[in-house]
Amino acid sequence: MSIQHFRVALIPFFAAFCLPVFAHPETLVKVKDAEDQLGARVGYIELDLNSGKILESFRPEERFPMMSTFKVLLCGAVLSRVDAGQEQLGRRIHYSQNDLVEYSPVTEKHLTDGMTVRELCSAAITMSDNTAANLLLTTIGGPKELTAFLHNMGDHVTRLDRWEPELNEAIPNDERDTTMPAAMATTLRKLLTGELLTLASRQQLIDWMEADKVAGPLLRSALPAGWFIADKSGAGERGSRGIIAALGPDGKPSRIVVIYTTGSQATMDERNRQIAEIGASLIKHW
């Protein structure tokens, strides 16, 4: 067993022997301040990774656009098919120029040779490549099948209805392509620590998230040296922004954090800054 596999296998073990965790309302004060600064709703939840206990939450059962955070769930569904012998990570998928959609920095470079399922998941999570996500959605049967996968996990809230990039439209009061912070946090925890996926697939999923290259201005910008984070960000229309993450000190994750916002007129930089400040408060009061 590799060191990384050992780390993920012992996530519940280490967490069980940690000192009790206590909620700190100071972080919620910052979440509410972010709402004021952005002029928009902000949803927040913080779960203990081992027990699933909610440590703090704000608007945990209000719907927010998922945006690209759905790509972690998508690759979880792909990995479940791999575990069941219905898919192979090494299978190569070929596609054409007509398949390319807006923001496809990886797939646009491989029109000639195609990409493997493993490479597509890596591109979808680490670079948020939209064509990679659409190609992977095709392998599982489309958005409705991802929703069905989530329902089978016990998540009857999260739903995907459309493809990239239309799913980022974020129309107010439109339930399409949305989740709730509580539902997303619980589902992410199941994917990373539950028995739904094999140990190898859980490790692969967290490795992809740990290698995320496009979430630097968010929670990662607030992390002290030595902290662990595996995350996936999302951005959408109407001032929408979000991030889902597993993080913790001492090089291992111990909490799940989900943050979503929508309806702001603020710039992307300002949305990023507010999420980073929430992260800084979380870490300060850990």
Rank of each mutant, 00 (worst) to 15 (best):
F6V: 11
S68E: 00
V8K: 15
V106H: 08
H24V: 15
T69S: 06
I171V: 15
N130Y: 05
M268G: 07
K109L: 13
T158F: 07
A235D: 02
F6C: 10
M66C: 08
D174K: 03
E270A: 12
A235V: 05
T187I: 08
R81V: 06
L19H: 15
Q88C: 10
L188G: 04
S264M: 06
D269H: 13
S233D: 00
S281K: 14
E108H: 11
I171K: 14
F228A: 09
R255M: 05
R7L: 07
S51Y: 08
V21D: 05
I45E: 04
G90S: 13
V78N: 02
G85F: 06
I171F: 13
A9V: 09
I283C: 09
G52D: 08
L218G: 04
G141S: 06
K232V: 00
D174V: 04
N98D: 11
L136H: 01
D212G: 07
I256M: 07
P65C: 04
N272C: 04
W227T: 02
A222R: 15
K252T: 11
I256T: 03
E35G: 05
R41A: 10
H110C: 08
K32V: 10
L73N: 05
T116L: 08
T179I: 01
T198C: 10
P65H: 04
G76M: 05
I45H: 05
V258R: 00
A132M: 00
I11E: 03
A222F: 08
K109D: 12
R238H: 15
P181K: 00
W208I: 03
T126Y: 04
P217Y: 08
R238G: 12
L191C: 07
I244A: 07
H156F: 10
S221F: 09
E166W: 15
A16L: 15
T139M: 10
L100Q: 05
L160C: 11
N50E: 14
E277C: 08
F22D: 07
D129E: 01
A15G: 15
C18V: 08
E87Q: 08
F70G: 07
D177Q: 01
G251Y: 09
D129G: 00
G142P: 02
G154Q: 09
V78C: 05
M268R: 07
R91F: 06
E166I: 13
D36T: 15
L146W: 05
H285I: 04
G154M: 06
K30W: 05
R220G: 04
L111Q: 10
S80R: 11
D48N: 07
M66R: 00
L196W: 14
T138E: 15
H156A: 15
L10S: 10
E169D: 13
L55D: 04
V78Q: 03
S68P: 00
N130M: 01
I93P: 02
H24N: 15
M115P: 01
L223T: 13
S240E: 09
Q86N: 11
R255T: 05
A77W: 06
S80N: 12
K32Y: 09
G216W: 08
G114N: 05
V257W: 02
C121D: 00
G251P: 08
T139L: 11
V117A: 04
T193G: 15
I140T: 07
A9M: 14
M127N: 08
I275G: 01
P60Y: 09
M67G: 13
K71R: 01
V8N: 14
S96I: 10
L111F: 09
A215C: 04
P165Y: 05
I229F: 03
R118A: 15
E210C: 12
T178D: 02
A15D: 02
G279E: 02
Q274E: 13
Q203A: 12
A222Y: 09
P143E: 05
K30I: 09
L89Y: 07
P105E: 06
F14E: 02
L79V: 06
T126G: 12
D48E: 12
K30A: 12
V101F: 08
S2M: 12
P20A: 05
A276K: 12
L100G: 03
N134H: 04
F17Y: 12
N272R: 03
R271P: 05
N130W: 00
R92P: 08
L196Q: 15
L55K: 08
G251E: 11
L47A: 08
Y95P: 04
W286N: 03
E175T: 14
M184L: 07
R118Y: 15
R7Q: 14
I11Y: 11
R189H: 13
Y103N: 06
L38S: 08
V257N: 01
V214E: 05
Q204I: 10
H94Q: 13
L137F: 09
Y44S: 01
E102N: 10
I140V: 09
N173A: 14
P224F: 03
P143L: 04
T179P: 00
E35L: 02
L136F: 00
T193N: 15
R92C: 07
K213I: 11
M115G: 02
A200F: 09
L191T: 06
E195D: 13
T112K: 15
E195C: 08
G236H: 02
A16G: 15
C75M: 06
L188K: 01
G194D: 13
V106A: 10
D161T: 06
V72C: 07
E102S: 11
L55Y: 12
T138S: 14
I45W: 02
A215K: 05
P65I: 03
E119F: 02
D36F: 15
S221P: 09
D161C: 06
I45P: 00
G142T: 07
A23E: 05
V258G: 05
T158G: 05
A230T: 02
L223Y: 03
A183Q: 12
M1E: 01
T147N: 11
L146A: 06
L89P: 07
A16M: 15
W227D: 00
I125T: 07
T147E: 09
L150M: 11
C121I: 05
D174T: 05
A16D: 03
A230Q: 02
Y260F: 15
E210F: 10
H94S: 12
Y103Q: 04
L19Q: 15
S68T: 00
A235F: 02
A225G: 14
S221D: 09
D33V: 14
S254A: 15
N130P: 01
I278Y: 01
A245R: 00
A246Y: 12
I140K: 03
L19K: 15
S80H: 14
Q88F: 13
T107N: 03
L73R: 00
E145V: 12
A222C: 15
A266N: 11
T139V: 12
N98F: 15
S128C: 00
D269A: 14
L192S: 05
R238C: 14
A230P: 00
A185K: 00
N173Q: 15
L247P: 00
A148K: 14
G52H: 06
G279C: 09
R59V: 01
L282E: 04
L79R: 01
D113L: 08
F149N: 06
L196V: 14
A222L: 07
L160Q: 07
V31E: 01
D212E: 04
P165Q: 06
T69W: 00
F228G: 05
I3L: 13
R91L: 05
H285G: 09
R241E: 03
T138H: 15
V29R: 09
G248V: 01
G279D: 00
L79H: 01
W227E: 01
N50W: 10
F22G: 11
L150C: 12
P253Y: 03
S254I: 10
S68K: 00
P65E: 02
P224S: 06
T186Y: 13
F6Y: 10
Y103G: 06
L205V: 06
V117T: 07
V8C: 14
Y44K: 00
S104F: 02
F58Y: 15
P60D: 15
L197V: 06
I171A: 15
Q88S: 13
K71P: 00
F17L: 09
I125H: 03
M180F: 11
P60C: 12
G226N: 12
P165R: 07
R238M: 14
Q274K: 12
S96T: 13
A211W: 08
E145Q: 12
P12Q: 10
P172G: 10
S240H: 06
K144E: 15
A170K: 06
A132E: 00
V106F: 07
V8F: 15
F64W: 03
G194P: 11
N50P: 14
R255I: 05
P65R: 02
R238D: 07
G43R: 00
D48P: 02
D177I: 01
A225V: 14
C121P: 00
K71E: 00
A84R: 12
S57A: 15
